[in-house]
Lab assay of single mutants.
Amino acid sequence: VSVELPAPSSWKKLFYPNKVGSVKKTEVVFVAPTGEEISNRKQLEQYLKSHPGNPAIAEFDWTTSG
């Protein structure tokens, strides 16, 4: 189950709350306009370098507050 949070234009930000008793931590995933899922800052940096014209990296908020 995921919750969609505010994201930069043409992107989606999905929040996957951890299940009770789960060892997996809460996860935030950005979905690029191409449909590619980005789950960490390093991936995001690589994606933005190879896909010019996207929002600046500073516009991506990895917190769950939206």
Score class of each variant (00 low, 15 high):
residue 27 E to G: 14
residue 63 T to R: 08
residue 55 P to S: 04
residue 29 V to F: 07
residue 47 Y to Q: 00
residue 18 N to R: 09
residue 33 P to L: 02
residue 9 S to R: 14
residue 24 K to E: 14
residue 29 V to N: 03
residue 62 W to V: 02
residue 49 K to T: 11
residue 48 L to I: 06
residue 65 S to K: 11
residue 62 W to C: 03
residue 33 P to A: 02
residue 40 N to E: 07
residue 46 Q to H: 09
residue 60 F to G: 01
residue 64 T to Q: 07
residue 17 P to K: 09
residue 65 S to Y: 10
residue 53 G to A: 05
residue 59 E to P: 01
residue 54 N to I: 03
residue 13 K to P: 03
residue 52 P to Y: 03
residue 29 V to M: 08
residue 30 F to S: 00
residue 52 P to Q: 05
residue 44 L to I: 01
residue 56 A to T: 12
residue 25 K to A: 13
residue 58 A to D: 15
residue 29 V to P: 00
residue 37 E to A: 11
residue 34 T to Q: 02
residue 3 V to G: 06
residue 9 S to F: 09
residue 45 E to S: 09
residue 61 D to I: 07
residue 42 K to A: 13
residue 42 K to G: 10
residue 31 V to W: 05
residue 37 E to K: 13
residue 54 N to W: 04
residue 2 S to C: 15
residue 61 D to Y: 04
residue 53 G to W: 05
residue 13 K to W: 02
residue 24 K to D: 14
residue 22 S to T: 12
residue 33 P to W: 01
residue 34 T to N: 06
residue 14 L to R: 06
residue 10 S to F: 11
residue 56 A to D: 15
residue 16 Y to V: 09
residue 46 Q to L: 13
residue 27 E to T: 14
residue 50 S to E: 13
residue 57 I to W: 06
residue 42 K to M: 14
residue 24 K to W: 11
residue 54 N to T: 07
residue 55 P to W: 10
residue 49 K to N: 14
residue 49 K to L: 12
residue 42 K to F: 14
residue 36 E to D: 08
residue 35 G to N: 03
residue 64 T to M: 09
residue 4 E to Y: 07
residue 38 I to E: 00
residue 46 Q to A: 13
residue 59 E to N: 06
residue 53 G to E: 07
residue 1 V to P: 13
residue 52 P to E: 06
residue 21 G to C: 10
residue 43 Q to S: 08
residue 66 G to M: 11
residue 9 S to Y: 09
residue 37 E to L: 15
residue 43 Q to F: 05
residue 58 A to V: 10
residue 4 E to I: 09
residue 54 N to F: 03
residue 36 E to C: 03
residue 43 Q to G: 06
residue 66 G to S: 12
residue 22 S to Q: 11
residue 13 K to L: 03
residue 22 S to N: 13
residue 30 F to Y: 06
residue 11 W to T: 05
residue 49 K to H: 10
residue 33 P to F: 02
residue 44 L to A: 00
residue 53 G to I: 04
residue 18 N to P: 10
residue 17 P to E: 11
residue 34 T to S: 07
residue 21 G to Y: 02
residue 56 A to S: 13
residue 2 S to V: 15
residue 22 S to Y: 08
residue 16 Y to P: 03
residue 43 Q to D: 14
residue 1 V to T: 11
residue 63 T to H: 08
residue 55 P to Q: 04
residue 18 N to E: 09
residue 32 A to R: 00
residue 48 L to R: 00
residue 21 G to D: 11
residue 56 A to V: 08
residue 42 K to Y: 12
residue 30 F to W: 07
residue 45 E to T: 08
residue 19 K to R: 14
residue 63 T to E: 09
residue 18 N to C: 14
residue 3 V to L: 09
residue 63 T to W: 04
residue 41 R to W: 09
residue 51 H to N: 08
residue 50 S to K: 11
residue 6 P to F: 07
residue 31 V to I: 15
residue 47 Y to R: 00
residue 6 P to Q: 08
residue 64 T to P: 13
residue 4 E to K: 07
residue 13 K to R: 04
residue 56 A to H: 12
residue 34 T to M: 02
residue 5 L to S: 05
residue 15 F to W: 15
residue 11 W to G: 03
residue 25 K to I: 10
residue 50 S to L: 12
residue 26 T to C: 15
residue 10 S to M: 14
residue 21 G to N: 10
residue 32 A to I: 00
residue 43 Q to N: 06
residue 47 Y to E: 00
residue 37 E to V: 15
residue 26 T to F: 14
residue 8 P to T: 04
residue 30 F to G: 00
residue 21 G to V: 07
residue 30 F to C: 01
residue 5 L to W: 07
residue 40 N to H: 06
residue 59 E to D: 10
residue 4 E to T: 08
residue 16 Y to Q: 06
residue 44 L to W: 01
residue 62 W to E: 01
residue 48 L to W: 01
residue 63 T to V: 06
residue 31 V to Q: 06
residue 65 S to R: 09
residue 43 Q to Y: 05
residue 38 I to H: 01
residue 9 S to A: 15
residue 23 V to H: 15
residue 19 K to A: 14
residue 63 T to S: 13
residue 52 P to V: 05
residue 63 T to L: 05
residue 36 E to R: 03
residue 44 L to E: 00
residue 38 I to S: 00
residue 39 S to C: 13
residue 58 A to E: 15
residue 62 W to K: 01
residue 34 T to K: 01
residue 3 V to R: 08
residue 12 K to S: 06
residue 33 P to Y: 02
residue 21 G to L: 07
residue 46 Q to I: 11
residue 38 I to C: 04
residue 7 A to M: 04
residue 47 Y to V: 00
residue 48 L to K: 01
residue 61 D to R: 04
residue 16 Y to M: 07
residue 62 W to D: 01
residue 20 V to M: 11
residue 7 A to L: 04
residue 33 P to V: 02
residue 34 T to E: 03
residue 66 G to A: 12
residue 45 E to I: 10
residue 14 L to G: 02
residue 26 T to L: 12
residue 30 F to Q: 00
residue 57 I to V: 08
residue 8 P to F: 04
residue 15 F to H: 07
residue 44 L to P: 00
residue 12 K to A: 05
residue 26 T to W: 15
residue 50 S to W: 07
residue 31 V to K: 04
residue 55 P to F: 04
residue 18 N to W: 10
residue 25 K to M: 13
residue 53 G to Y: 03
residue 63 T to A: 12
residue 53 G to L: 05
residue 31 V to N: 02
residue 66 G to Q: 11
residue 18 N to L: 10
residue 27 E to Y: 15
residue 3 V to T: 07
residue 2 S to D: 06
residue 29 V to Y: 08
residue 38 I to T: 00
residue 34 T to P: 01
residue 3 V to E: 07
residue 35 G to E: 01
residue 17 P to L: 13
residue 5 L to D: 04
residue 4 E to N: 08
residue 56 A to R: 08
residue 15 F to R: 03
residue 64 T to A: 14
residue 22 S to K: 11
residue 54 N to C: 05
residue 7 A to G: 08
residue 46 Q to N: 10
residue 63 T to M: 06
residue 22 S to A: 11
residue 32 A to D: 00
residue 45 E to Q: 10
residue 48 L to D: 00
residue 63 T to N: 11
residue 16 Y to N: 05
residue 15 F to P: 02
residue 34 T to F: 02
residue 28 V to W: 03
residue 46 Q to Y: 09
residue 41 R to K: 13
residue 56 A to N: 14
